[in-house]
Design a protein around this nucleic acid. Structure first.
Lengths: 340, 340
DNA sequence: GCTGGCACTCCGACCGTGCGAGTGCCAGCA
DNA sequence: TGCTGGCACTCGCACGGTCGGAGTGCCAGC
């Protein structure tokens, strides 16, 4: 029906104008700035319907209209075209990420890049440990009865843990332990590491059993727990910058939630590689994120998401642009990590 | 002279009141809230002198007085008594830091602790690489012609670098290389690592020379550079929280500077273990830090500062409390790291 | 079903006023 | 000589009223 068609067109125009101007948009301004082919009066009727359906609202009588969360949702799902990145932006992505020296560096650059590209707060998750596989396990003696375990995963992540042992250990035992651990765990996904422990304990020579048990329990407890996922956050200055108004005056609850990490971590973990996920305002069932939207995507190779990355900003954001940027960056990061 | 004595007392009272109320403080309020033993009129005379000397200023005619940077400086240097932490606060420090699983965790907890204790932005530097010594160097083959070096320092820091080699490498060479590197660098301070390279190259067997040269140059280039110092930042929500007024409306330049890290890193590196350093407003010759003060101290054992930590806040801050908190936390972190 | 016209609403900018806090100065006093 | 109370003056800010403009809803006409 041509009716509904135009009404959606009106909604799209409202979203676009409101995002770029930050002013509630009225019927006359719409008619001026867009070729809708009808008069302001007709637009007013459409707007009344859209308001009744809950897609837009007016801050107060006789002000313009503003999209609701539901309105943004419709916009993102049906009204927004993918906005391809400019050549300059693609160049910037490559230039920014090339020359990173290690995983920490890659992710640090990624978060800065995303923040700069989108002018929002950027969030990048370290490759999930549980989905990574062991590349190498190093054992270093740091005291007579204390070992440091260093885990190197196939995603380039390096984790360290100190283990206190019940008795002093000699150098030979350390070397044996290293060999044992590596032959047992090399190439094994951390999520499956627990299954290997009984086998390991059985094959271990008698005099090492106790040590192996201590070490493997530390490994499992501190590394396989999902809580061990890490987050890099950047671009918080963008919050303070313009969007003071978007968050009813204060951005500090949002900053707190970001530093807390746990909420964002939960949200960012639910991603597939390749599919950009948008969460708008109230859809994030967390108080501090009311009024904020998340645009997230998984990065990694085609078949396997290593982790998630994305941005956090006001619901009033340029969704098409941000979705494109997030996707492009994730794709490139996936490539970089696959190479190394 | 009793005169100067009282004038300083007035300055101290002004600083204290202004810090706690955030209002310019007038002569009458001073006389009411402090036992200065003189009338408001006399205080007014003292204030006029203090203003002429540049210790205080008035935002506009017929408002109260506000301390200048110079005034805070005098306060910190001569007028503030060390404010001992409460038992509860000491407990909190211990409880917060105990149970950390690795260096990353220790520093993460430290920054959260400091931010919570002081209600300011907290900054913690990773142990400086150049002042650390090599505990172990691990070499892991990640592809036919690509190695990953993992450096473990005596401060518990772990750094990784990927090295591309001109030719394929066999497993035996990797093991040899590992032994060579460790015997050459174990226990050596990274700052002195460069000196060991000629020796190392000489003693290396012919067929490994090229490999050793490639690897050591990567090590030196990427790890000994001072730019490789890292920073953990937390409590940025405290900036947005109350002190919007303290930074003439916007905190975003400060947030940007913090994320940039380089400025703060430079300032935080100039620390001795044990001596709390206070930089007030303009004393930080960096535009974004005008209006901000830094309270920093080195952490580590008695004779060796591993790195710096501290807080960043408005010049209008509770210096005695913050100095005490920073010092106490640094001391405790030093202990924890010495143990591990 | 669209359009122009019209009356109505209401926010926000603008302005003038008055109040209160605070000052500087001065004369008097110990 | 230095402290004190008194006094006139200044100035920012909160308060309240006014006005204009933008935007709306409704209605009659095409």
């Amino acid at each position: 029906m041509a009716h509904d068609e135009r009404r959606l067109e009106v909604l799209r125009a409202i979203v676009q104008d409101y995002v770029s101007t930050n002013d509630p948009v009225g019927s006359k301004a719409l008619a001026d700035r867009h070729d809708l082919g009808v008069s302001p009066a007709t637009i007013r009727n459409d707007m009344a319907v859209l308001e009744e359906q809950g897609y837009i609202t007016q801050p107060h009588t006789s002000a313009g209209r503003v999209p609701t969360d539901k309105g943004y949702r419709l916009f993102v799902d049906r009204l927004s075209a993918v906005k391809p990145l400019s050549v300059a932006e693609r160049r910037a992505i490559e230039r920014f990420l090339d020359g990173a020296v290690d995983l920490h560096d890659v992710l640090g650059r990624t978060v800065r890049l995303l923040a700069q590209l989108t002018r929002q707060v950027a969030v990048v998750q370290y490759p999930t440990l549980s989905r990574s596989a062991v590349r190498h396990l190093e054992v270093v003696q740091v005291a007579a009865a204390r070992l440091m375990l260093v885990l190197i995963t196939d995603t380039g992540r390096v984790e360290q843990r100190v283990v206190d042992c019940p008795a002093d250990i000699d150098a030979g035992a350390v070397a044996e332990l290293r060999t044992l651990l590596n032959s047992a765990f090399s190439g094994v996904k951390l999520a499956d590491a627990g299954d290997k422990v009984p086998d390991l304990l059985e094959t271990a020579p008698q005099h090492l059993r106790g040590l192996v048990a201590t070490v493997s329990s530390t490994l499992l407890e501190t590394l396989v727990e999902p809580s061990e996922d890490r987050l890099v956050i950047g671009g918080t200055a963008n919050l303070a910058r313009g969007s003071a108004l978007d968050f009813q005056g204060t951005v500090s609850p949002l900053l707190e939630a970001l530093e807390e990490q746990v909420v964002v971590l939960r949200l960012i973990s639910e991603v597939d590689a390749g599919t950009v996920l948008v969460r708008i305002g109230e859809e994030n069932d967390h108080e501090a994120l009311t009024g904020a939207s998340l645009v997230t995507v998984g990065y990694g190779s085609r078949d396997r998401a290593l982790g998630g990355l994305g941005i956090v900003g006001p619901t009033r954001m340029d969704y098409p642009m941000n979705m494109a940027a997030v996707r492009a960056v994730a794709r490139y990061v996936g490539q970089i990590l696959a190479e190394s």
